[in-house]
Amino acid sequence: MKPLMESERFVRLAAPILVGAFLIGGWELACRHWQVPVFLFPKPSDIARSLMNDAPTLLGALWVTMRITFQAFLCAVVLGTLIAFLFVQSRFLEISLFPYAVLLQVTPVVAVAPLIIILVKNTQAALTVCATLVALFPMISNTTIGLRSVDQGLANLFRMNRAGRTATLLRLRIPSALPFFFAGLRISSGLALIGAVVAEFVAGTGGRGSGLAYEILQSGFQLDIPRMFAALFLIAFAGVSLFLLMAWLSKLALGGWHESEVAREA
């Protein structure tokens, strides 16, 4: 058996964990040593305790935020892909609509959110709309670029073989677009979460069905800083999980052939 240090997998896992443990340990020790008050900067152990005690509320809030995130992400993927297909089918459509897609992207969601919350009666739906707006653009632009970046030689080959529109789409355009599509998924999934949290902040909805952002706001008002950190930790955790999920999907789809996903050979 070869030494653990030479195993790529082991190092990949162990090194970041070691860094994390070191940081958390240092944090804990520093807080204890200087006796930092818990309402200024809590120790990791305080945060962990808060996470345990408030688990039902916090996990419930996490579920609400994640639901909005996933709904928005799904909407963004479906809408973005559809719009991209439209753009590729018709140059005229793209020319007329693309500026508005850009407009959508550059307008900060914080600025638009109040308007949407007023216009859309159902708060959940309003939040989903906000998050979708944030997550939509990367899907449109990436998928459009992907569908366009077809190798000219292959396009000629398909033409010479009298491939129909559908066959060209299925066998050439869509596979060519996949790497771009998955890159879009990674960006978009993270943005959906950010959009959901930002929209929750703006909406400030409390009561039943409130998300993590509301928990953070509330914890701030109540000076329950460990709880605030716990909520923050959950958001970060959710973001990382989303990213890993997308990376895994991308590897599943492109692992065999695309340069970005192929394992380095020695």
């Binding site: 030689g153 292959l154 000629n156 080959l157 073989n161 009298r162 066998r171």
Partner: peptide
Amino acid sequence: GRRLAFVFQDATLMPWARISSNVSLPLDLA
């Protein structure tokens, strides 16, 4: 099948498809 085949300057293969699928492409399209 067709009577005319063209070989390009580059191999012009579909990177996402296995060799067998690449070779059978003209037949699949027909």
